[in-house]
């Protein structure tokens, strides 16, 4: 196992870097997009609500691999898009549908009196959302968001299907060469733990601090 690590150190580190990059971009992207679509889902405007709901239901109910291959094989005819970005964009779209549901759940569990108080105070719906309801909703959504972010890191292994140069891809390459998948995947599993472990601890810490 140590030999796998030393023989393939730079390959593994490259994969680790791409997995981290995809996870960070995916996390930020899905947080922003997820919030936007959660707001659309909850909007009083029927058209926005339809778009938001349609988006969430669509991306939540098709496999991540299908979205990934769609970008890699189909979209790339029109716009040049490599495996890393095809996978990462798919990851953002897929995860943001779940993030939207977490945030909607969080916002829905904010006391309706908060909105009423703000509206009676003269704030518009949007102002009340931004200043009062959304910050409280986010706080309530943190535990479920944490789960989604850990899933996101693990789901980034989808990149391996489209040569996205991530950890899982490198694991496949290494085990294809050394013919020892057993130990190779154990080593790679440990690297995933190095990412998800601290993320998990951080989310727990955030949850406790904000309680």
């Amino acid at each position: 196992m140590i030999k796998i690590l030393t023989d393939n150190w730079s390959t593994i580190i490259t994969g680790f870097e791409f997995t981290i990059l995809s996870s960070i971009v995916g996390l930020l992207g899905s947080l922003i997009l997820g919030t936007v679509f959660a707001l659309m889902e909850m909007a009083p405007n029927k058209f926005l609500k339809f778009i938001g709901t349609a988006f969430v239901e669509f991306f939540r109910n098709i496999p991540l691999l299908v979205i990934t291959l769609f970008f890699y094989v189909v979209v790339s005819h029109a716009v040049k898009i490599n495996g890393f970005w095809a996978g990462t964009i798919a990851l953002i779209l897929y995860t943001s549908s779940f993030v939207a549901e977490c945030i909607r759940g969080g916002v829905n569990s904010v006391d309706p009196g908060q909105m009423e108080g703000a509206r009676s105070n003269g704030l518009t719906y949007t102002q009340a959302m931004i200043h009062i309801v959304l910050p409280q909703g986010f706080k309530l959504a943190i535990p479920s968001l944490g789960n989604q972010f850990i899933n996101l890191v693990k789901n980034s292994s989808i990149l391996s299907f489209v040569a996205g140069l991530d950890l899982m891809y490198q694991a496949n390459v290494i085990s294809g060469a050394n013919l020892d998948p057993f130990n190779t995947y154990i080593v790679i599993g440990i690297f995933y733990l190095l990412l998800t472990g601290p993320l998990s601890v951080f989310m727990n810490h955030l949850e406790n601090r904000l309680r």
Binding site: V73, V74, S76, H77, V162, A163
Partner: peptide
Amino acid sequence: QAFSALQSGQ
């Protein structure tokens, strides 16, 4: 999959 990657210009 390698072939479809070639076809889609990857």
